[in-house]
């Protein structure tokens, strides 16, 4: 019955690309999901892709059981500072970072499992007035933070046991960096988006700021999600939380833009707009490979193929209607989180009540 209720609405006849509900997990001890992610966990010689859920005061690790069920392995209880987001570290095992703070990130902590003595630990990685953080390949973490006078962009390397090794600083741009993305296939290249709507490119090895390129005035406060270089161009996937609807492009949630880093000129490649007739705008989302997913202000989740610029599936705002309707229902109820697992084959969708649904895409 549940699977039937949650069957996503398909658009434009793209029926081969749909979302299939695989399983649900709900932490009975928590009422609200702040973030969800996946991490590899290896214990007793067995390596499994696990789900990590965060509520304001704790982070839990869930392992797959038989019959598409999930069992909680461990919960890290955190202090008085609320958890804001999970910061996954790609291609690592038994390590995940979390960002904590009030309104803004005040500290980043590492949560880890030691298979040597079968114990769960935590350690402090960084404190400060942190504006953006991203886990990079090879157990590295990049963050931007601000003091009154200046901005610091720093890379911290983490060891297998979680201890921070020497950090490296990158040359900061004048504007505050609000998001980072690794340039796929280029180990030493990193891009960021700034508060003044520019893309900046760094050389991670030397710390040099190589280029600053303006995104344009039509789409303020762009956030970078993904970047890759092809045929001498830098392709960047951006989301536009504050984009205004236009006749030519509809209401764009994501755009793929090609930059020529030599000249700083750019051109739009694809627009991924809200489905026709769908009111509201982009709230938050995630990109993996050519797939993008976002929670909309209506409480729905939309999924796009970024190469086609086309919406391929939509989870309606109220996927699991209460048989005894609330007399005062939340008008924007439904979904709160949309995250891809380590591949775009699995979507983790979080409801406002803390339930996480796993969909095969």
């Amino acid at each position: 019955d549940v699977a039937e209720q949650l069957t996503p609405v398909l658009l434009d006849g793209l029926r081969e690309e749909s979302l299939q509900l695989v399983s649900k997990l709900k932490d009975s001890s928590s009422s609200c999901a702040v973030d969800v992610s996946t991490m590899w966990w290896e214990a007793a010689g067995c390596r499994e892709l696990c789900v990590v859920t965060a509520c304001e005061s704790s982070v839990s690790l869930w392992k797959p059981l038989a019959s598409d069920r999930w069992g909680k392995v461990y919960t890290w209880q955190l202090g008085e500072i609320p958890v804001i987001q999970i910061v996954p570290l790609p291609d690592t095992c038994n390590l995940v970072c979390i960002a904590l703070g009030d309104l803004e990130i005040g500290e980043i902590r590492l949560l880890l499992y030691s298979s040597e003595n079968d114990s769960f630990k935590r350690s402090l990685v960084k404190t400060g007035n942190i504006k953006a953080v991203l886990g990079l390949k090879d157990r590295r973490l990049v963050s931007s933070s601000r003091t009154v006078q200046e901005q610091q962009v720093e890379i911290v390397s983490l060891s297998e046991t979680g201890r921070s090794k020497d950090g490296q600083t990158l040359m900061p741009p004048e504007e505050t960096v609000l998001a980072f993305a690794e340039v796929e296939g280029m180990r030493d290249a990193l891009v960021g988006t700034t508060a003044a709507n520019s893309i900046v490119v760094w050389n991670l090895k030397t710390g040099q700021l190589l280029k600053k390129m303006h995104v344009g005035y039509s789409y303020p406060a762009s956030i970078c999600h993904r970047a890759y270089s092809d045929s001498g161009l830098l392709f960047v996937v951006l989301s536009h939380p504050h984009a205004k609807e236009s006749e030519s492009c509809g209401n764009p949630a994501f755009r793929v833009i090609a930059f020529n880093p030599k000249t700083a000129r750019s051109t739009g490649v694809t627009f991924s707009s809200l489905p026709p007739g769908h009111a509201g705008r982009y709230l938050e989302g995630d990109v993996k490979e050519a797939s993008a997913a976002a929670v909309l202000t209506s409480g729905a989740i939309a999924v796009w193929d970024l190469l086609l610029g086309q919406c391929t599936a939509l989870l309606p705002p109220d996927p699991d209607p209460d048989p005894d309707p609330d007399p005062d229902p939340d008008p924007a109820g439904g979904w709160a989180l949309a995250r891809w697992a380590t591949t775009s084959a699995c979507l983790l969708a979080g409801q406002r009540d803390g339930t996480i649904c796993l969909y095969r895409y």
Partner: peptide, 23 residues
């Protein structure tokens, strides 16, 4: 997009910008 829109394209843009940028 054509090359004329974006200006001259270099496959080695990362190395070239790294050589040009201040250390």
């Amino acid at each position: 997009c054509s090359e004329s829109d974006l200006g001259p394209i270099s496959l080695n843009w990362f190395e070239e910008l790294s050589a040009e940028a201040p250390p």
